[in-house]
């Protein structure tokens, strides 16, 4: 019988590592639309980490802001200006 808390810690560490990679790619990417999508990956993984930390109320607020509102506003801004970072 595997300890349940050990599973939770392992999954949390794996997803935290993946979100670090996504954040690094979002910073170094030249194409701004792809940078927004990498940021969306990072916020999805953070939602799972908040869930495993037993904070569902944080998830209920964090997901609409970081997956719903933030890419909408930034994509509207990219549509008005230019796509590539110069």
């Amino acid at each position: 019988m595997v300890e349940a808390s050990l599973i939770v810690l392992g999954v949390m560490a794996l997803f935290a590592l993946s979100s670090t990679i996504a954040t690094y790619l979002a910073i170094t990417e030249r194409n701004l639309v792809k940078a927004v999508l990498y940021s969306a990956i990072q916020s999805t993984l953070y939602a799972l980490i908040y869930y495993l930390l037993m904070a569902p109320d944080i998830v209920l607020v964090y997901v609409p802001v970081s997956v719903g509102l933030y890419p909408a506003i930034v994509l509207m801004l990219i549509k008005k200006t230019e796509k590539e970072e110069s």
């Binding site: 639309v33 999508l37 969306a40 999805t44 939602a47 869930y51 037993m54 569902p56 998830v59 209920l60 997901v63 609409p64 997956v67 719903g68 890419p71 909408a72 994509l75």
Partner: peptide, 21 residues
Amino acid sequence: PILIATAIVLALWIYSLDIYV
């Protein structure tokens, strides 16, 4: 049981990312 509400929110809002892109 309180953790179940997060799944509904996640499935609803990721659809909006599709439509935006």
